[in-house]
Amino acid sequence: MKSNLYNHTFFISIIAALLLCTNGIAQQIDLSNYSMRFVFKTVKQADNTRLLEVSFIGFNDNDRKDKIPVFGAEIQFLNVLNDEEILLGSSKTSKEGTAQLILPENQKYVTDEEGYINLKARFNSTDALSEEVADIMVKDLHLDLNLSEIDSVKTVTLTAFTVNSLGDKIPVSELDVIINLNTMLSKMNISEGTIIDGTYTFEMTESFAGNTKGELAISAVIEDNDEYGNIIQEKKVQWGTITKQVKANDHSLWTKAAPIWMYVVLSILLLGVYINFIYTIVNLVKIKREGDNIKTEPRKNYTVY
């Protein structure tokens, strides 16, 4: 029998080509249509480490939804003072186009005369991509989160200060802060306000369940401040109010004695059914009597169906 495959050579060839050449349909990307975005930010984290993060993504000029993260680009993070550049470390961008570097709590930075830390992120040019540089200036702000009960009132006290060259704590003012309760999936905003004379106090009157240990994770966040950047401070406290299930889940069956309603309902049901049985038997007796009468009386008196 001749195979039908020979009748469709063209289609079979295309299918075979597609099967054999997995890269055959990949498109060549024209980078001239893309604008590169090189965003650098820093966050001082709850454990006082500092996160340096670069996002390196190309956006299509014609379609802003079309974006290509740059993968594997080496980013250098530098601490700059005047012309002096101190390499803090380097990191390669991930598949999402993000490069991160976490600097320890005891990291020494060089600062300018006003106390600013100048940070720079740099990507050195390659054949395909040109050089990208971004810098940030932030002051090192310290947040001290104190969670205590004052006169039985759960009180959140946040102290914000900087440390000068002599080691003195200098309180800061006019700084917006958000107090969050960290939940499983997101952060719940429980208070917002402004730090004045280095302090912000918030009384927590609402009750929250917390985690299984009864702990609440409370965080103070300063976001995108021109002078201090992003700072997060977080602490856990045993303030959770758990409602425990008091009733034990015992598996006993129902009751020792039947309730009255059960006797009543069952009696009515059974009575209804058995009354019908009696009614049927009574009717059968009537049928029998009529039959007996036919035997004794002349048959003509009855209409036979």
Binding site: V273, N276, Y279, T280, N283, L284, K286, I287, K288, R289, E290, G291, D292, I294, K295, Y302, T303, V304, Y305
Partner: peptide, 28 residues
Amino acid sequence: AIGYQDTKTQRDRLHKITRIMSTIVIVL
């Protein structure tokens, strides 16, 4: 046969109780 002669009254009576019993049997 309990003296059943298939008279009209017997037949009607039997039909009536059979019909009632058929309902009871469904419910039961």
